[in-house]
């Protein structure tokens, strides 16, 4: 394989893994996965409740 081909494969794998990991991490943190950005959503508090509860619990423990 040529170097450029190796770079293409490595990049593709890196992109796939990083996106999947970031989605999983976002889910664990309770971040919303909906279509719109929270800034323009009037319901952002509702979506983020879990994250805020978890963060608040963590802050209280600290």
């Amino acid at each position: 394989m040529k170097p450029i081909e190796i770079v293409i494969v490595v990049l593709a794998v890196a992109i796939v893994l990083s996106v999947i990991i970031s989605i999983i991490v976002s889910k664990i943190k309770g971040k919303p996965s909906c279509c719109s950005d929270c800034k323009s959503c009037p319901h952002c508090k509702a979506c983020n409740r879990e994250a805020i509860t978890k963060t608040a619990t963590k802050k209280n423990k600290d």
Partner: peptide, 16 residues
């Protein structure tokens, strides 16, 4: 912030 400004009740259901 760029909150959505709707023109009917119920656009902002929860608090911001």
């Amino acid at each position: 912030s760029t909150a959505h400004v709707g023109n009917w009740p119920g656009v902002t259901v929860d608090k911001r």
